[in-house]
Amino acid sequence: MTLYFGDIFPYLPIMLEALWVSIYVTALSFVVGSFLGLFIYLARASRFRALRWFGRGYVEVIRNTPLLVQLYLIYFGLGQVGINFNPLWSVLIGMSLNNAAYTAEIFRAGINAVPNGLREAGRALGMRYDQTFRHVVLMPGIRNVLPALTNQFIILFLFSSIGSVISLDELTAVLENLNSQTLRTFEIFTIGALLYFLTSAAIAYGARAIEKVAFKW
């Protein structure tokens, strides 16, 4: 058996285009999901029992069901009751909701790790609870969570490949198509894997660079 990587190169632009879809779907759901996650965390840390239960329940349900099943529910399940989303929207919604649960837990761990003395110092100066949170706790908390958030971003990026099962034209879906066209299975998926790997590595590298610039303290 001989490998013909040369045969694959003409398809590289298509792959890169699909990679771009993977990246922006991930970035968009990460931003929206992390924002939601912050609110889920705040609900979990709330004074109100109902909110705490909601936050807790949300996190548990999402974390204990597969993303694939969540995606089927949104795309096919909701379709059955007359709520139709196209593949792109389904993936965006599914990944955002999924990411929210994980980032909520990341925020919780990071914020809880901020020394309580800082909170007390803020309150003792006469700042309200919300002011203390915003001006005193938040930044050290973000610094604590950044490595875990980077990790979560990469995991989400790799999980975006399941968009292929509902025919979103992201990288994996396009790889499958090219595979059935050319039957160069090994070559195509090797290059595909390499594209995923390089992108993930670039994200990790970029995050470390941001950390260095943003946290001079």
Binding site: P115, G117, L118, E120, A121, P140, W217
Partner: peptide
Amino acid sequence: VGMVFQSFNVFPHK
């Protein structure tokens, strides 16, 4: 009422 703590509690990011 000002307060000074044993562990300083200066804000590290400021």
